[in-house]
Design a protein around this nucleic acid. Structure first.
Lengths: 358, 358
DNA sequence: CTGAAAGCGCTTACAG
DNA sequence: CTGAAAGCGCTTACAG
């Protein structure tokens, strides 16, 4: 094996030390040290100034990384074949994987991708991870119970990214799907919509959490659940959204009183926009369209897509952090950890923006 | 202010260094350094041996702490008056607060308790925290929306422990209540019970998640929801559980076919045990009783209490860790983080243990 | 991967 | 809280 210079990866910023911090904060070197270690009583103002400078210069982050970095050098990444970049036109997968490698690179962690059977197998993944000397495994986009069970209790820590484990055998990191969907639906309700169509598909349990959130919003306002309806597409690709909507409109002879479509993914929303416009509906005046994911293409559609942004970068960061925590300070009996990160509503054109009436 | 020797708190274990690790692992000093920093290619076996030794000696943990410790010296703790130790016979509150101070102490963090109005007020809490120079706030057992909203976006990071924030404005750390309740209910179902009474109270939203989990278990097996029933006590104290059960039995003229009581808290379960025994029922043969919390008294009841253990120590650790993460490496726009930790089913006597029949 | 050695960055004790 | 100084622990380069 060639003598890869690991060290280079790890200090992209050339040696920021407490000397730099002391200069930046305008205090003595020793004062910085005392603040950082709590070894002497320092006034609140100076403390704050020092910490602020240390954070700004990236010194705190560097120090934190140095503490954790030891344990994770190689991360084994298992992605279902259907979600690998060359097989998947879904930008969510692509962006999430990109963020994950970027985060790994930032920490000097090598990423090795799993390549196995058409369907992911726990034993294969574990063997692959051991073969390359990985200290931890990240499983993405997959949460079939058999696979999760097979990975539970393995001698390597495993984090499931963007999936859920009902048995709580594995640590998981996911966007707050239910919350985000409630947020979007509530936004539509607060803008006067009552008949909202939720366009989704059954493929992933995390996507089903968005359906839960859709219902939560109605429940929270005490509105009858049947004002909202659910329309299932056969997949998550734009064309499948078009197909589902086309059938819906044909069957009902029009929009049937619906004034908004809330799509469980931007991909579906893009299909919805296309189909609705093709059928001559104006967006958002005839019907509002809201997506979920917040990936790039939504900015470029006409009209631009109102959506819920999933914090893909933070999800990647939390995932790697979780692995490092497991490796460096959590003991074996620390319970499984389920992490959800907040999503943000992004108001653009397709959702409309008439004055709030509720 | 006296010259408190902060440093002492922080190295309870007297200076474990890489020299100790190298001895423990049986390798050269330089090898340990290379492993910890990835500065040279080291074989998988040696790496593993070194890391194992470093973890065992607590060196990894020490290093990790050193990275984060800087930013948090004083933690401001806000507890609703009703849950403060002298007003509360509930061991959950007591244990959780104890674990939190223990964790803080372990990290050399000073804890200052808030003392304000009968009802917690956001502005008061923030003022109090600033007055003592705290870098972060932990709010426990309270999740009234107005309070949470008032603390959202504050210039100090706030973590809500054992509560939920539907608006996801704050970071939260809580046990996986829904999961734990499903686990317990499923255990009862798998042991042949069908008519299960869920004894709970309406006081806290986190407790209501346990009701969700109770229902999940029925739903998962495709059993009719009305086989399980919910009985509300007027509070969470043993006597209030007794009262609720007494009324129930009087009203129905007996147990009405129920073969198990699943209580949303050990406190309620203890009351249930007392009342059921007082009325002449044998536990678990006439009726099984299962609690939730896993605090000490459940081991001492007769029969001992089958329950779901909440990882109070890990919850405290995650809470402090969360604050430190916010302070040292998460930037302002890192989204709010919701953390749930897994619970564990603890099989003792009161739940029975006949052979699994399903 | 070892082991001795040089060097660096941070910590610490102290006078001001 | 400063600043100069001693010292410690870890890192690093190198010969074996």
């Amino acid at each position: 094996m060639p003598n890869r210079s690991h060290a280079v990866d790890r200090r992209s910023d050339r040696k920021i030390g407490i000397k730099d911090v002391s200069r930046e904060a305008g205090v003595a070197l020793s004062t910085v040290s005392h603040v950082l270690n709590g070894t002497a009583p320092i006034s609140q103002e100076v403390r704050a100034r020092v910490l602020e400078a240390a954070r700004r210069l990236g010194y705190l982050a560097k120090r934190q990384q140095k503490g954790a970095i030891a344990s994770l050098t190689t991360l084994y990444l298992a992605v279902p074949p259907g979600n690998r970049p060359h097989n998947d036109i879904n930008l969510v997968s692509w962006t999430m994987l990109t963020q994950l490698s970027r985060e790994a690179e930032r920490r000097g962690v090598r990423v090795v991708a799993h390549n196995g059977s058409a369907e992911l197998q726990a034993a294969e993944i574990l063997a692959g991870a051991r073969a390359v000397g990985a200290e931890g495994i990240v499983l993405v986009f997959d949460d079939n119970p058999k696979l999760l069970k097979g990975l539970t209790g393995a001698d390597l820590p495993v984090v499931l990214l963007n999936g859920e484990d009902p048995a709580m055998g594995l640590d998981t990191v996911a966007p707050a799907n239910r919350y985000g969907a409630r947020l979007a639906t509530e936004w539509l309700l607060s803008h006067g919509h009552r008949r909202i169509l939720h366009l989704t598909w059954r493929g992933r349990s995390t996507i089903m959490r968005r359906l839960d959130g859709f219902r939560d919003a109605y429940a929270e306002r005490g509105l009858p659940q049947d004002q909202g309806e659910v329309l299932y597409a056969r997949g998550y690709e734009p064309d499948q959204a078009r197909e589902a909507l086309r059938d819906f409109i044909t069957e009902r002879g029009g929009l049937d009183g619906f004034t908004a479509v809330f799509c469980a993914a931007d991909n579906l929303a893009i299909g919805a926009l296309t189909e609705l416009r093709a059928q001559g509906y104006a967006i958002p005046s005839d019907i509002a369209v809201v997506g979920f994911d917040g990936v790039a293409p939504g900015e470029l559609t006409v009209p631009s897509l109102t959506t819920v942004r999933v914090p893909l970068d933070s999800l990647a960061a939390s995932t790697v952090q979780m692995l490092e925590n497991r490796l460096s300070f959590m003991n074996r009996d620390y319970p499984a950890c389920r992490i959800e990160l907040g999503c943000q509503f992004v108001e653009r054109e397709s959702g409309g923006s008439f004055v709030s009436i509720a």
